[in-house]
């Protein structure tokens, strides 16, 4: 649990920094569709920031799917579980 909340709070912080939104506004419903600043360029940077922060590498297919807060948390959960 501790790990999970650490992950979600760090993801929330990264999303807030990259997309310039208040961290409080980032929850389960937060997605690329509903966020004007989530451009393809910011997506590129977001993915690379997640990769270096959590020391993972996403596949092309995964990158296409990392378009919401929930999807990112789930993808990281899968990766980090597989890694242990």
């Amino acid at each position: 649990m501790g790990d999970e909340s650490r992950i979600s709070s760090r993801v929330r912080q990264l999303l807030a920094q990259v997309l310039d939104v208040p961290p409080d506004s980032i929850g389960p419903g937060f997605s690329a569709d509903s966020t004007g600043g989530w451009t393809s360029l910011n997506h590129l940077m977001l993915v690379s920031q997640l990769e270096s922060e959590f020391e993972v590498v996403f596949s092309n297919q995964e990158i296409g799917e990392l378009t919401s807060f929930t999807a990112i948390i789930e993808a990281l959960g899968r990766r980090l579980d597989a890694g242990t």
Binding site: L14, A16, Q17, V18, D20, M45, Q49, S52, E53
Partner: peptide
Amino acid sequence: QPWSAYQAAAR
């Protein structure tokens, strides 16, 4: 610090 910190400061 990573790029995201610069992005936030630039905003």
